[in-house]
Each structure stands twice: as structure tokens, then as C-alpha cells.
């Protein structure tokens, strides 16, 4: 009657289920309005007479709002909920007690988070960059930096959702306090923050200097984001296997 569930099928089944679970009207509305704030800022930049170099200013807005707030917060909301919500409300058992390997469940959850988060971040940011009169390089840099940010943050927050019961506040603490305060004042702390690498990507690809905490070269920044994602997913699979499931 049954046959083994292949890894690809496990990923697809988990992905399909979780995309459906993650896409609630409330979440979408809240996070779309966050993206709308960036577009609004871009409109302001485009309309302002005081802005001397809009192409540069809009990249600074993409940095200050997009990479610092929109990318981590959207990733946090969806990635931490992908498996964290299931754990919290007791439905994880319906994925956990199945003949599917743990890594494929984690990969499905990660892809579900990306499916929702990538368009919710890159589209408003790209639109904002265009509205704000960014150069073509600036628009591409914005999309690439946001995408790598979502890739890294989402994996880390999938893991966080499996590690602790209240991942949102810990994730916000990481974004606001660790990346927002400590990483600004300490270089070692900055090196341990995803934001430094996404900002480096934005700065390098748009050729707009963004200051001391954005000085990694492009390949290093890409590698760190990929490494963070892969490492977090591997740890999440291990964590899922050892999890106490309700």
C-alpha cells in the first residue's frame, strides 16, 4: 500500500503545505505595508528638491530601510513560523511522524519561507529603487543584496523557530540589538552579523560606498550568506530530529 517517500517529494509536499499555512491575509497585509513604506520613501527621494544625488540617496534608503528592516523582519516572520508555528500549535507531529527524512522537511520549510519572503522583499525594494531613480546597477544590487539577505536570514530563522518557543522576539532582538546596535560599534560583532554582508553586496554592486560596516568583498559576502544558509539548515535538520514533539 505504501512506498518510500523520495527526498524531492518530501520537499515538495512540505513546501506546498507550509506555503498555504504561511500565507495568511494578516501577515501579507502587514508585510506588504512594510514594503510600501520603502516605496513611499523612494517617492519622497524622487520628489525632493534637496536631494543632490538621487541615485546615491536611494541606495542609502535601500540600505537603511530595505536591508536593515524589511529583509530581516519579513524573513523572520515567515521563516520562524514555517516550522515554529507547527511546533507551537501541535501540528508538527503530522510532518514529523512520517517516513520522510528530516533534512527534506527542513528544506521544504525553508523553500516555503523563501517562496513567500523573496517576492515580498525583492519586488517592493526593486520598485522603490526604480521609483527613486536608482541606476540599473543600483536596482540589480538592491535585488541581489535583498535576495542573499533573505536566503541567509530565512535559514537562520527556520533554525530559530525550532530552537525556541518565542522566535519572533529573539529574532527581533538579533535584528534590533545585535545588528542594529552592537554591530555598529564593534567590528568583530559586525563580522558576525548578516547585515554587514548584505550591505557589502549592495555597496559593491551599486558602487556606492556605505561606510565601514560594509567592506567585505563580493565573493566573501556571497560565500558567507550561502554558508550561513547551509549551516543553519543542517543544524535545523539535526534539531528537528532531536526535537521533543507535542
Amino acid at each position: 500500500m505504501t512506498q518510500s517517500v523520495s527526498t524531492v517529494r518530501s520537499v515538495l509536499l512540505t513546501h506546498r503545505l507550509l506555503v498555504r499555512q504561511l500565507l495568511t491575509p494578516g501577515r501579507l497585509l502587514a508585510l506588504l505595508s512594510l514594503g510600501a513604506v520603502v516605496v513611499l520613501a523612494a517617492v519622497g527621494v524622487a520628489a525632493s528638491d534637496e536631494v543632490e544625488d538621487p541615485a546615491r540617496t536611494i541606495i542609502e534608503v535601500m540600505d537603511g530601510l530595505g536591508l536593515v528592516l524589511v529583509v530581516p523582519v519579513v524573513s523572520l516572520v515567515f521563516a520562524s513560523a514555517s516550522l515554529g508555528d507547527l511546533r507551537e500549535d501541535g501540528t508538527l507531529v503530522y510532518l514529523w511522524l512520517r517516513p520522510m527524512d528530516r533534512l527534506s522537511v527542513v528544506a521544504g520549510a525553508y523553500l516555503a519561507a523563501l517562496t513567500v519572503s523573496l517576492p515580498l522583499t525583492t519586488l517592493p525594494l526593486a520598485a522603490a529603487a526604480l521609483v527613486g531613480k536608482a541606476t540599473v546597477d543600483g536596482v540589480i544590487a538592491t535585488v541581489v543584496a535583498a535576495s542573499f539577505g533573505v536566503l541567509a536570514y530565512s535559514a537562520a530563522f527556520v533554525l530559530l523557530g525550532l530552537m525556541i518557543r518565542n522566535p519572533i522576539i529573539w529574532g527581533l532582538a538579533y535584528v534590533l540589538v545585535w545588528e542594529g546596535i552592537f554591530a555598529r560599534f564593534s567590528e568583530p560583532v559586525g563580522n558576525a552579523a548578516v547585515r554587514g554582508y548584505t550591505r557589502s553586496l549592495l555597496a559593491n554592486l551599486s558602487d556606492v560606498g556605505l561606510g565601514p560596516a560594509a567592506e567585505a568583498n563580493t565573493s566573501t559576502a556571497v560565500l558567507v550568506c550561502v554558508f550561513v544558509a547551509a549551516g543553519s539548515l543542517a543544524m535545523a535538520a539535526v534539531r528537528l530530529n532531536r526535537l521533543e514533539v507535542d
Binding site: L40, G44, S48, I168
Partner: peptide, 23 residues
């Protein structure tokens, strides 16, 4: 939690944009 953040930081950003960017 995200709602509280949006009500404070999100609104703060919007006000900042209105004053600093839109004038």
C-alpha cells in the same frame, strides 16, 4: 510582537520619510 514593532518603528519611519524626504 511584529504589530507592536510596526506601530512604533514602522510609523516612526513613515514620519521620518514624510518630514525628511517629502519635506
Amino acid at each position: 510582537s511584529v504589530g507592536v514593532l510596526g506601530a512604533v518603528v514602522g510609523v516612526s519611519i513613515v514620519v521620518g520619510i514624510c518630514v525628511d524626504a517629502i519635506g
